[in-house]
Design a protein around this nucleic acid. Structure first.
Length: 327
DNA sequence: AAACATTGCAACCGCGCAGCG
DNA sequence: CCGCTGCGCGGTTGCAATGTT
């Protein structure tokens, strides 16, 4: 026996709500209050399903709802909460006054997700393994396209000064610099958690002793004396190769914290441009447009830092780490 | 100007869960 | 403990608005 429908759908209206229907619903709830959605339509005289009434009220007619564009503070909070909560939209919505889960879900799907496709997949709620694989495949396709465009760009210049975080490996990997490696203790290895396997003992041979903070998903350190790291800014993945070796065998693709890419995307967001190529130069992020290869803008490091102040979660901590550098 | 493609968002659908008898 | 009911959630769809060719 199948599940009983939530209401008798025969003769019920579907689709967009009219002003008259809205008025009837609002008036009824103002007099009788919320609750008993199943019986509400009949009592109120609406030819709608109870669920439809509830949805209309919760997502649109409630007086405490905030309309209009999401502020930068709200966007930042959504990023932050999504990193820890995944697609638990109702929980995210509970942290944003006046925003509904549907609002946030829609905004995420249409605006934000495409900007952070490459973020590490942390606690993604009820997503299945199949969905994760599919998502990963989609991202790869996008990244491939983007990579094809990016290769047309001129090679990046080196950055003056030291950067003590994955920026540096990113920058130097383009120049095929090597990083020497100090093995991390066994008890630091925990394959269960992407972030718990945090290695803070990777030293870059080309920039004295400064830590590169990367989170590795697999133990790639055993019997490895040298490690060369290539970073893909678009995917936030670091592909590692051992050195010396007869050939540069890729031994692992490791996921790293959202590095510069997260900042770049935020900048893209702020400047309302769709696809950029950005680099750190002269104490500013240089923003170029991939479409016509033209220079667009610079954003100071202080401005970029300001985007990510007072962050607390593990993921955000790593974002913060991305901003550690000395010049 | 028309046809087609893309985007944004309101609304729908099905499932899981909690409460209750 | 079991089945029923209603609610809430997250995924998906449909369509109007907007952009592009």
């Amino acid at each position: 026996m199948g599940r009983k429908p939530c209401c008798d759908k025969i003769g019920l209206k579907k689709g967009r709500w009219t002003e008259e229907e809205d008025e009837i619903l609002v008036n009824f709830i103002q007099v009788h209050g919320q609750g008993s959605w199943r019986s509400l339509p009949k009592k109120a005289g609406l030819l709608r399903c109870g669920k439809s009434c509830r949805l209309r009220w919760m997502n649109y007619l409630r007086t405490d709802l905030k309309r209009g564009n999401f502020s930068n503070e709200e966007k930042e909070l959504i990023f932050k909460l999504h990193a820890t909560l995944g697609n638990r939209w109702s929980q995210i919505a509970s942290q944003l006054a006046g925003r509904t889960d549907n609002d946030i879900k829609n905004y995420w799907n249409s605006h934000l997700s495409r900007r952070i496709d490459s973020y590490p997949q942390v606690n993604r709620g009820r997503n299945t393994e199949v969905e994760k694989v599919e998502s990963s495949q989609k991202n790869s396709e996008k990244d491939n396209k983007k990579a094809q465009t990016t290769t047309k760009k001129k090679k990046k210049k080196s950055v003056a000064g030291k950067i003590i975080n994955p920026h540096h490996s990113f920058k130097y990997s383009n120049n095929e610099e090597e990083c020497s490696l100090i093995p991390i203790p066994d008890d630091d290895i925990n394959a269960e958690s992407e972030f718990s396997n945090l290695c803070d003992e990777v030293f870059c041979s080309s920039c004295d002793i400064e830590a590169l903070n990367c989170s590795f998903s697999t133990n790639i350190f055993e019997n490895t004396e040298h490690l060369s790291i290539e970073s893909n800014r678009t995917t936030s993945e670091y592909s590692c190769t051992t050195e010396p070796s007869t050939s540069k065998d890729a031994i692992a693709n490791v996921q790293c914290s959202p590095d510069l890419s997260s900042i770049f995307r935020e900048i893209e967001n702020l400047l309302d441009i769709k696809e950029t190529d950005a680099e750190l130069e002269n104490n500013s992020y240089m923003i170029g447009d991939l479409k016509d290869d033209s220079f667009i803008n610079t954003v100071s490091i202080q401005e970029a830092e300001g985007l990510y102040g007072n962050l607390a979660s593990p993921a955000d901590f790593l974002w913060d780490m991305d901003l550690w550098y000395t010049l």
